[in-house]
Design a protein around this nucleic acid. Sequence first.
DNA 1: GAGAACGGTTCCGTAGGACCG
DNA 2: ACGGTCCTACGGAACCGTTCT
Lengths: 349, 349
Amino acid sequence: MNQKTAQPSANKPASLADVAAMAGVSTGTVSRTLSRPEMISEETRDRVMQAVQKLGYVVNGAARALAMRRSHTIGAVILKFGSSNFAQVVEGLESEVAKKGYTLLLSAPVPDGKTEFTALAAMLARGVDAIALLGFEGLEQTTEILARYPIPHAHLWGDPKGGGHCIGLDESRNGRIALEHLADLGHKEIGLIWGQTQSPLRYRSRLRLQGVKAAAKKHRLHINPDACIYTEHGFEQGRHAAKQLLSASTGITAILCASDYLAVGAMRGLQESGLRVPRDMSVASFNDNDFSAYVNPPLTTLHIPIREVGMKAGHYLLSQLGEAMGSDPHALEVQLKIRESCGAPASRK
Amino acid sequence: MNQKTAQPSANKPASLADVAAMAGVSTGTVSRTLSRPEMISEETRDRVMQAVQKLGYVVNGAARALAMRRSHTIGAVILKFGSSNFAQVVEGLESEVAKKGYTLLLSAPVPDGKTEFTALAAMLARGVDAIALLGFEGLEQTTEILARYPIPHAHLWGDPKGGGHCIGLDESRNGRIALEHLADLGHKEIGLIWGQTQSPLRYRSRLRLQGVKAAAKKHRLHINPDACIYTEHGFEQGRHAAKQLLSASTGITAILCASDYLAVGAMRGLQESGLRVPRDMSVASFNDNDFSAYVNPPLTTLHIPIREVGMKAGHYLLSQLGEAMGSDPHALEVQLKIRESCGAPASRK
DNA sequence: GAGAACGGTTCCGTAGGACCG
DNA sequence: ACGGTCCTACGGAACCGTTCT
């Protein structure tokens, strides 16, 4: 009884065989009709298409992936999703790969110990064609499995020395640009509210800090170690740090923050303590988040093309996959947004 | 020659057969060892595990999905990713489904015409086990294919009347709560900066507005139609709208905004025009975004548990999939965050 | 442990028509 | 008019790597 006939509307999704039966052709023909229609005569093509329509057929991705050894899926594994700008990166990445019919498979493990590795392994098991790693630590196990599984992968915001293709900016230069702005304004003594710089994960942060310090030395601008606070990123952390800085009475006239989160929080802390920005204290930072132009005062910050980093990664991965991509249009240019949170230093008290 | 022997380190990923050959067992045994280790004798289990280790074996998800008819993947298709709080929803969703070993497949089509449908079809083709729809319009084609493909799905922020399981809040009530705060403060004449309310996509926005208006009537508070501006969400739009409102000279003492983006932009616009918030004008809104407590002045806003909506959706979908989930812990409670952007109305000029 | 699904893709082969000398 | 060749459109079947009986 149970022949290979088309079941008009069973409760199971229609398969290729169902379509073939209804159209009176073989499964191979249906497959070809769908993937390379020009190889099929118009007449049978119509018949097949009709059957497809009628049965509401959609391919089974698992079967397809198994046969083709291509899933048309790009993995993105993200350490610390919430507390950073990764959402924007993901958005850029998604929009880029979607152009070629790829879909993003997302994993955002909470970073503790070796989840980095297990998350990566899970991605690989899912059969992604390529993989984007955001904020990776570069554990041994990680690099090893990456080497064993020869699929294209890119580190976003990673350490170039960790091996593999890295996408990011010249953070040392970024640090310099920001500091020079402060120097140009006439500041001689500044404070820092920075992120953690220890772990390998904080590579970028460390590099940026080096750029700041080198430029400070060059411009004879003093960064008092007592006026440097290292903390996590976040508004509240910035607010708290600013108050600490104030209580230390170090004579600084400006604060350079590692992120807009920190900076906006810091401005809030300063204002709560009765200081005016920028009259009493200048504040500058990095990233140019969407809110930064609309806080009060608008924040002077170095614009980082975050979304573009995601797009660039997508472009790279796709081209590695053999997709025709053209040359990379994503330039990753940084731009200092001079707004109102920085001014000349107040005359010394 | 080419027997089924293990190839220690070819350039192809090891398969189940390779592991089986190396361990001297059948593929079935290996499969069981991996999925239900307790069924296998300790001795052979060790042998298998060793082979797995040695070959760096990881399962082929496509083959597994094909055989089990389960991909352990949840689709999330998102209309208008960037311009909303969907990133947080996605984060919540991801964290919830990850607990049970599921991964998110992400699609964020640019919404124009029927992309909603094609994106959905693409997800289905990928073989997701369940699907979360964020910000859907409820096109006919969409609901039809959803009906045909009997997989669990949930609409987030959708219209309950559109059919299907909807997750969201009582927006009418939310509108009322915000308005009553303004009424309690003594405001009699207020303005609105709101999002679009026309398209089906804006269902939530419309409902919230209805709640506001109903409460206004009840509390004898006047909403001057000339002081209502409908625009897109965004800082710049808010800033622009505030200036429009000012030039209309309508005697309003407070502005209620549909989102924090709008509100923060509006405050900026007011400040640029020389007004002080809240002395000259109160501003309130909805969402309680992360930056809202740190702008100047801190924004009074109705906290919406956005991340929790994502988690709740994950919980629902997983339980529909037959995972043991326990009762739903996500209550979705709203909370008015009274900060400093609202005060009593200034005495009339 | 053997072997049949699972649902596609793709290689290979062939029927049949067009075209040629 | 006929045998041979080339080409196109399609059918048949092997194969992808698991799971489950």
